[in-house]
Amino acid sequence: MNDVFNITLIYATIRSATPILFAALCATVTQQADILNIGTEGIMLTSAFVAVLTSFTTGSWLLAIVLAIVSGIAIALIMAVANIKYNAHICAAGIAVNMFALAITKFGLKQFLGTAGTFTSPEIKEIPRIHIAALDNIPILNDIFNNWCVTEVFGIVMVVILWFLLFKTVWGLRVRCVGRLPMAAETAGISVRRMKYEVMIISGVLGGLAGAHLSLGYSQMFADNITNGRGFMGVAAMNFGGMNPIFVWLGTLIFGFIDSVGARLQAYGLPSQFILMLPYFFTITILVLAMWRKGRLSEKAKSAL
């Protein structure tokens, strides 16, 4: 069992959790304004492709992240315009955007990179890792803290930033007000439409980061449907954390933990399909538990009145 549960599991957990973390934050910020962001998956997928394409053609990971964010915003804006301006059901718009992302990345892979299925190349410039030379000789700390990817650190920073934005600023108060009771927000002089657009743009930024990290930090490749439901895991983590970035982060850590333990269990002869199934199974379980708890809390709140 020592091969599975050892000190390197801590970093492995964070490594697998980070793509889901960005996705979850992307869903969190919109959910605070009461927009269920089903399109997280699509935003992530598109920006993952754009990141790989830019990194491969220009050789700059920073530019790749920037363009990934831009494309993430573009996809989020499609959803925002469809939902806010043209009254599309947000779930329908989300599903539509997901399909669009699936199709356009497939097309782009064929058109611009000339392959189908998977693209990988040594010329893809990946997001650098932070190497702290001082830690090299300290056994435990080296395993935990050395060689983090820049975006992995940034993900944790982002949790704090988002938490501060949502709960400690006027803007965050307004967003949450829009989410709770749009009519009251309107009466208080807040433009609900404007707030929703702003929130969607921020979710585009976060989703763009999620995609860029997935294809340039977590792995150095792009494949059809590389996100593999991670956007939906993000939505589940958002529900688990009750829209609070800090708890959402804890939720993604659970997913990361399950994912990395699963990967290590493969050596013990379990069929690979069951290992691959594991994260999805636990995501559903956690989602159900989170909603169950939420339902009980709201019932309690009702009976207290």
Binding site: P271, Q273, V288
Partner: peptide, 26 residues
């Protein structure tokens, strides 16, 4: 429990795919 059905559906589809994959490989 008011769990969003789209999330569950998409995630359970992956489970179904892997499960059938295991069946027809095993």
């Amino acid at each position: 429990w008011d769990v969003n059905e789209i999330c569950v559906c998409i995630l359970s589809t992956y489970i179904a795919k892997y499960f059938t994959s295991w069946l027809c490989n095993g």
